[in-house]
Nucleic acid binder design. Sequence first.
DNA 1: TCCCATTGGTTACACTTGTAAACACATTGT
DNA 2: ACAATGTGTTTACAAGTGTAACCAATGGGA
Lengths: 129, 129
Amino acid sequence: MSIPNINLTTAEWSVMECLWQKSPRTGREATEWLKKSMGWSRSTTLTLLRRLEAKGAVACDDQGGIKSFRPLIRREDAALQETEDFLDRVYKGSLSLMISSLTKKQALSQQEIAELHEVLREMEANPDD
Amino acid sequence: MSIPNINLTTAEWSVMECLWQKSPRTGREATEWLKKSMGWSRSTTLTLLRRLEAKGAVACDDQGGIKSFRPLIRREDAALQETEDFLDRVYKGSLSLMISSLTKKQALSQQEIAELHEVLREMEANPDD
DNA sequence: TCCCATTGGTTACACTTGTAAACACATTGT
DNA sequence: ACAATGTGTTTACAAGTGTAACCAATGGGA
């Protein structure tokens, strides 16, 4: 399988976000970005990058000492994976159960609801699934 | 705050499911249930129950040696918590982004879609949120 | 040429999580 | 009274995670 099930930890998600936002990035860029956004020290980011490389989630190209990193998995794929795990655990795998729970808890803002309708309308218009 | 943010691990979710399904349950009932459903040994379940008690997620009433456990948090609340964390991490907090991503990935079955419509219809019928 | 700054790697360490054995105490049939 | 059984507690331990200090190499300026 070309898209193996890779599970990202929360810290790893942050690193991936950095690379998904723009890639490739040199080690320098990545560490600086994450120092700003997360307050992490240089080594922390580099360690995470290594772990992600080991997992097969990022690749690193080394040209003359300087390394640059790029994601090997797409955000959508990671997100889908995460979503399935989550839905299974919390909502017995059922998306509609999730939505109806949220509405019951009144946890959806007017705006969310409007957007939902919008998405559903689009879904109807594009019955390609 | 009376509903503190409690985060459950996957194993802890299993224990809570057991108690949410029926409560109170004696230690015995719980261990047996989880041995069946999860294949866990007695001690595993009891350890988890203790950890959950420490977290304030379950209470245990001790009458004459035998203990019985009951949840202190409701499933809906735990689920909502979990859902918020998840949505923030993966979909920038936006439910509609989640749904539209899923439709783009064609990750929804016909049935899911039908159910979604159903939920939305209900939502329209009950504009109490 | 030699030192400093930059870049990446190695090692570390505490905390969490999953899983359970080992132990201790109570109860009860014989 | 005692052994067997049931019930709960303590201790353990490996793997995973968050976080980073420390070390090694290397390239550029004095």
